[in-house]
Simulated assay, not measured.
Amino acid sequence: MDEANGSSLLLFIIYFPKASNWVPPADIKEQPSYRTALIVTFIAVVYSAALAVATIAIGAVAPEYLQAYANSLGIFAAILTSIQYFPQLWTTWKLGRVGSISIPMMCIQTPGGFLWAASLAARLGWAGWSAWALYLITATMQGVLLIMGIVFELQHRRRKRAGLVPESETTSVSGDTISEEIEGPQETSPLLNDRTTKK
């Protein structure tokens, strides 16, 4: 588990909404429990530890298989990286707004991802594709989300200037949330529909 993912996991546990201080929106029947969050964290830590042990074992016993092992992990990571963006892309598309996604942050992060991927590719070449392909895919997904967000934000501002947007609806750039009067998915809507949401 790298430092960024470890930090995200720690923040996930710290800021996971507790039943005592958070009321779920009306469209959510049941909020996942803090126990569920701890189980997810435990699984992630065990998985990371298992990968570390497997890497050390392969390096010690059969180092000639390390490149194939790295490539297989690279493919697996690329698939998971792609999948993790689909719920956010779909929700943003259905919402037609960026919500709490920071466009300025994405403007910095997206080019940075491409630069980092290019830097790794220049140093490692095609032999190290399993290292830089992951960053390339991530940056591409972020780029799609960024373009979608910019287009939606410009459309929203154009409608607002034309007087087609209710005063109760605010832009995400100001940090405000979307009014509950708006039908359809909202910022508090889950990214994935499951048994806890109304169909």
Score class of each variant (00 low, 15 high):
Met1Asp: 03
Met1Gln: 01
Lys18Asn: 14
Trp22Ser: 13
Pro24Asn: 05
Tyr34His: 12
Arg35Cys: 09
Thr36Arg: 14
Leu38Tyr: 00
Thr41Arg: 07
Ala44Gln: 14
Val46Thr: 11
Ser48Asn: 11
Leu51Glu: 12
Ala54Thr: 12
Thr55Leu: 00
Glu64Gly: 01
Tyr65Cys: 07
Tyr69Thr: 00
Tyr69Gly: 02
Tyr69Glu: 08
Gly74Ala: 10
Ala77Asp: 06
Leu80Ala: 13
Thr81Asn: 09
Ser82Cys: 15
Ile83Cys: 10
Gln84Tyr: 02
Tyr85Met: 09
Phe86His: 01
Phe86Asp: 04
Pro87Ala: 05
Trp90Ser: 13
Trp93Asp: 07
Gly96Gln: 03
Arg97His: 05
Val98Asn: 12
Ser100Ala: 11
Ser102His: 04
Ser102Ala: 05
Pro104Ala: 13
Trp116Thr: 11
Ala117Cys: 07
Ser119Glu: 05
Ser119Arg: 09
Leu120Ala: 14
Arg123Met: 04
Leu124Pro: 01
Trp129Asp: 09
Trp129Tyr: 14
Ala131Trp: 09
Ala131Asp: 14
Leu134Ala: 00
Thr138Arg: 00
Val144Leu: 15
Leu146Trp: 05
Leu146Gln: 09
Phe152Val: 01
Leu154Ser: 02
Gln155Ser: 12
His156Lys: 03
His156Cys: 03
Arg158Lys: 15
Ala162Trp: 03
Ala162Cys: 09
Thr170Trp: 04
Thr170Tyr: 07
Ser172Asn: 08
Val173Trp: 14
Thr177Cys: 01
Ile178Asn: 06
Glu181Arg: 09
Pro185Val: 15
Pro190Leu: 04
Leu191Val: 08
Thr196Phe: 10
